[in-house]
Design a protein around this nucleic acid. Structure first.
Lengths: 124, 124
DNA sequence: GGTATACTGAACCATGTGGTTCAGTATGTA
DNA sequence: TACATACTGAACCACATGGTTCAGTATACC
């Protein structure tokens, strides 16, 4: 199986584990922005925002380019394909693992329904 | 729009940002395990593994139950639905954002082709 | 040239993370 | 009872994180 190198997912999931950074991604999905724009939007110093952008850039989720004195940030090339795939695979595993439990629950529901019918019948 | 409370995603994406914890999830997808089992599998002290399990438990990805002296870990109730949805939505935004760029690239390709034809024509 | 804008880097701070060791406690087993 | 097993909690460690301030540098504009 693919050796889940870790470091790549470490970076992307790590980048996503912060609300500000998720916000920045959503914002950049609407329109490109400078560090200043983002810092204002998220009520933070330039330096603080620069660090967040750095993390996102490291994870490949954002790219930046400096023209004159302003650094413009855009969405990067990584589109979270592998991350989506990992989660999907997990959900698959999860579903299989709980199939049995689901059956048990379904069986219980069925019984309850039958019991309910009996109850109603009694009352009739 | 839904106020992305943050803390929930912070916990789940944070939990996923570590290779050992992703490994533990995959392992628990195969079979329930004690702390000792997991510690052995991932070459770590019991205490270290307990912390990882704690993080996963906090994120709702794992549940544990102690019977006698052994604590058994299983997959938890959270099946990463919202996380999958967030990523999907992001991928959607990403696609829209880059549609324009794709068009530009396609246009360039088309031009190049035309130019190539002109070049060939010239040479004829 | 002078002033405002936009970023950058170093340094600091509190807190969190990923691990360890060590010293327990509780439980199973001969 | 004695011994082994399984976990637990406190304390420690080095380093990362999420922020700040402060002192720059580079660029734009009057």
């Amino acid at each position: 199986m693919v050796q889940y190198t870790g470091t790549r997912f470490d970076a992307s999931f790590g980048a996503l584990s912060d609300a500000t950074r998720r916000g920045v991604l959503e914002q950049l999905g609407r329109v490109d922005a400078s560090i200043t724009d983002l810092a204002k939007k998220f009520h933070m110093t330039l330096t603080g925002m620069k660090k967040h952008v750095g993390v996102l850039e490291q994870a490949g989720l954002v790219t930046t380019e400096k023209v004159g004195r302003v650094r413009t940030c855009k969405l990067g090339l990584r589109r979270l394909e592998e991350e989506a795939a990992w989660i999907e695979r997990y959900r698959q595993i999860w579903a299989v693992r709980f199939e049995e439990l689901d059956k048990v629950i379904a069986e219980q529901r069925r019984k309850e329904k039958v019991d309910g019918r009996k109850q109603r019948k009694k009352r009739e």
